[in-house]
Amino acid sequence: MKNLNSLVHKIKAIPTLPTVFSQLSDAMTNPRVSNDDVTKIISSDQAASIKVLKVVNSAFYGFAGRIDTISRAIMYLGLNEVRNLILALSVINLFKKNKTLLNFRPSEFWSHSIAVGIITRLVGSSIEVKNLENYFIAGILHDIGKLVFFEFAEEDYIKVLTFVEEKKCLIKDAEKEVFGFDHSTLGDLLCEKWKIPNSIRNAIRYHHSGISDASTNQLVSSVHIADIAARALNLGYPGDNLIPRMNKKAYESIKLKEDFFVTNYDLLIQNFEETNKILLS
């Protein structure tokens, strides 16, 4: 059994997020920063700027073709949401490897994560959360700990995937069996290293139970529900193909409508296909 400390030590070797993201985060801590300053930082990374514009103009955000510059994107979506999109793109690029372990492919992993991001935001919107800026990114990052295992404990992760195949169990249980802890714990540590905001960090840490403290509970519950829905709808592949039960406390506490899934199905699939294509291209 590997201990957590040795993996934590390895996490130190994880590349930091791209300059554009760290510059952006630093700039945002400065109360005197202007939108022009931020626009300059984002525009310095052309590939990221183009993808951000593609995403904000997709059906998912609903600004079809109306946002043609980064400064407009900031104006319509807010600085935090744009920063979060840059974060999503940065992390996907960081781990978009072609390497496959058994039947676990990063592209399928990201498709699952993108689906969870989309459903999380749709859940948030349906329960009328006022500030949705962290919803998409929390879904995208919820399983990030799996990629740390994947990247830094390859041999043991093959044991995890073999265990899943043989025992037909959830990947988190196989991880606990092999490592003694699962990807939610590891994801939490990565968030600490990357200084990810607390609400997103809680969603990563508690997405299996769907329950957290009152201040972040809506987001945590939304990610929990979205994770299970993405599994049920077979969107992407999270490392096992099982569908656990949603925690009743999670959907009751956020008062999710009983017909949420049937009402949002078409939109969900359309948004998933479009966003998946943009982010993974």
Binding site: I228, A229, R231, A232, L233, N234, N241, L242, I243, P244, R245, M246, K248, Y251, L256, E258, D259, F260, F261, V262, Y265
Partner: peptide, 26 residues
Amino acid sequence: NRLLWQPETPIEHNLYEVSLNKAVKD
């Protein structure tokens, strides 16, 4: 076979139906 539960509450029935329909379509 993939499902670790049987639908009981209305929202579980809702997710079950939508997901089963997608599985059939796929």
